[in-house]
Design a protein around this nucleic acid. Structure first.
Length: 568
RNA sequence: GCCCUUGUAGUUAAAUGGAUAUAACCACCCCGUCCUAAGGGGUUAUUGUGGGUUCGAUUCCUGCCGAGGGCACCA
């Protein structure tokens, strides 16, 4: 509809002999009494037309009315020169029919039709805990992947895990130091992971304070790459396997399924190879290391191969980039990471551009902020201990469990609801603000189950579903959309869904969906509170509307990676 | 020092250059209603600050102030 109106207004301007140089703005007015659509062209082109905005507006309105544009009910002019357009109720009825046909999943736009898009996200490191940064990264990445899918893209979800590097050596060193406590194969995963992450923490601190430990760890680091030390291999293989198994549990909880896993261990050699091949052209040697001088492009210098001959993160990322090309070439390659890697990434892309511009062209970097405590402090649990991604969700689960106590539900259903709601609450608290900003996370505020929250959205969808269930399948089949003034806000919002999705897709910003979902849910709850749905003459049309809301709300939530439980 | 990000009610957030800056939380008050009260309704703003561009600026440019991140062998 928007494009349609833009086209007609452009034509109207041209017919008045005005050259359309600044584009044509058609938007939804903030105030619904100003019509369904509004254009500011009369204001924007008044000077160029050498007419007063109102005079120009009048001529435009006359021409537009003359055109008898389909679905347009009324066109009016308002001071100081806004052209306001109202659509017919048939238009909205048609839109509801479209939504009912489409359902709650599938493509929303053709933004990425025919494109293969790889989204790399989460990227936790084996031997280290899955911390809240990974949780945030996973939440944003998953949502972006969903958005790309909804845009018609063929999406590949990729996860790149750091199974070699100094952090691994630190963990192995720590594991060897605490050899007697080494878990048995029969121990549960939690015990194993506690052992590994403690070993890492110990190794990391000793690396800083103990000269000998630092030497030993550096030596281990080399052996991890060469795999020539049998004893090291044992620790390495077990620690790595446990970590990966643990991560899978977390992914299952969060509802992510990766298509492909990359490991630093598989890309290291390739990275070194490619970097070495371009010494003298792209890279240069300096103090025994191989570096890239970013200053030539307004950036900073970074080391790609260190003086021990081992690839740094940067060097491995070069290897990863080419490995992606070989295993799963895509048209667009999105990487989600924390903001602290933003500048680093620019250097990486700059180096890649010098090697192969075609590859750098398709790379997109989405950066997100950090999750912090209330006053920008480091986030800790309610008990004051350090938080991991998992323990955060566990704490929220406890809160949800409290709420569920009074519900009449089977134990099994409660568990199901508890998981969906707590994951939804955490995800929503991340996705409600734009990705670049830090999240001030406060248990009492962020994890609310009321108002601007994930559970509010889930609850609204469940409620709508419940009305439909009460209506029964036969009744629902009779549902026929007919525009009613009481549901106006809902019709407008439902019509807006596609635009919001397109914007989120273009900007790689899930939070637009989150804001939209709240608007829709809130409008629905107001409608629900004031309008009887069942057992009234208007029931067939209202059921159609409720059904459309339920579909779009569920769809919005699925784009955020949040699922709707059967009941709440 | 240089580069990037950021500054909006008490708090947390929203607003492709548009009309009266949008919500939620908190606080107080009201609604037990048939369809799920995790709900609905009601009561609070010099958009950090000084300039500029524009018919119009929270949005773009710029000076200053504050916060976060990055800047050679960590990831």
């Amino acid at each position: 509809m928007k494009n349609e109106l833009e086209k007609h207004i452009t034509e109207a301007l041209i017919s008045l002999g005005i050259e359309v140089t600044k584009g044509v703005v058609v938007e939804r007015p903030a105030d619904s009494t100003h019509g369904d659509w509004s254009s500011t062209v009369a204001l924007a082109y008044a000077k160029q037309a050498k007419k007063a905005p109102l005079a120009l507006g009048e001529s435009l309105v006359a021409i537009l009315k003359e055109k008898n544009i389909q679905h347009v009910k009324d066109i009016s002019l308002l001071h100081p020169g806004f052209i306001n357009i109202t659509l017919t109720s048939e238009y909205y009825t048609e839109r509801i029919k479209d939504i009912l046909l489409k359902g709650k999943e599938g493509e929303v736009s053709g933004e990425f039709k025919g494109k293969r898009v790889m989204v790399e996200y989460t990227d936790p490191n084996p031997f280290k805990v899955f911390h809240i940064g990974h949780l945030m990264n996973n939440t944003i990445g998953e949502s972006i992947a969903c958005l790309m899918s909804a845009g018609g893209a063929d999406v590949v979800r990729a996860n790149y895990q750091g199974d070699v590097g100094l952090h691994v050596a630190k963990a192995i060193w720590g594991m060897r130091q605490s050899r007697p406590a080494f878990p048995e194969d029969t121990d549960d995963l939690k015990t194993k992971m506690t052992f590994v992450s403690n070993a890492y923490a110990y190794g990391a601190s000793q690396y800083e304070s103990d000269e000998q430990a630092k030497k030993d760890i550096d030596a281990i680091n080399k052996e991890v790459y060469t795999r020539e030390n049998e004893d090291i291999n044992v620790y390495y293989d077990k620690g790595r396997a446990w970590s990966l198994e643990h991560f899978e549990e977390v992914y299952a909880l969060l509802g992510t399924k990766f298509d492909i896993y990359y490991f630093e261990s598989e890309v290291a050699t390739k990275g070194v190879e490619i970097v070495r091949k371009h010494i003298g052209t792209v890279f240069e040697e300096s103090n025994g290391a191989v570096i890239y001088r970013g200053e030539k492009n307004g950036l900073h210098t970074r080391v790609f191969i260190n003086s021990q001959g081992l690839p740094t993160y940067d060097g491995k990322d070069i290897g990863l980039t080419w490995r992606k090309e070989e295993t799963d070439p895509s048209d667009i390659s999105v990487v989600v990471s924390a903001e602290e890697q933003k500048e680093y990434y620019k250097v990486l892309v700059s180096a890649i551009r010098e090697i192969d511009p075609a590859i750098s062209e398709k790379m997109r970097h989405v950066t997100h902020g950090m999750m912090q405590g209330p006053d920008g402090t480091k986030l800790s649990s309610r008990k004051g201990t350090a938080l991991t991604g998992e323990s955060l969700i566990e704490e929220v689960e406890e809160l949800v469990w409290e709420k569920l106590r009074e519900r009449d539900m089977s134990e099994e259903d409660k568990r199901e609801v508890m998981q969906a709601v707590s994951v939804g609450a955490v995800k929503y608290s991340i996705l409600r603000s734009k990705t670049s900003s830090n999240i001030a996370f406060d248990f009492d505020k962020s994890i609310s189950f009321e108002g601007d929250s994930g559970p509010y959205l889930q609850y609204t969808a469940v409620r709508a579903r419940s009305v439909l269930d009460k209506a029964g399948s036969q009744f629902l089949a009779d549902a026929t959309p007919v525009f009613e003034e009481v549901g106006k806000a809902l019709y407008l919002l439902l019509d807006k869904f596609e635009e919001v999705v397109v914007r989120s897709q273009r900007e790689l910003e899930p939070h637009h969906i989150a804001t939209y979902a709240i608007e829709l849910a809130s409008a629905f709850n107001a409608f629900y509170a004031n309008t009887p749905i069942l057992n009234v003459p208007e029931t067939p049309s209202r059921l159609a509307l409720v059904h459309a809301v339920e579909l779009v709300l569920t769809h919005s939530l699925s784009l955020l990676g949040i699922r709707v439980p059967k009941k709440m």
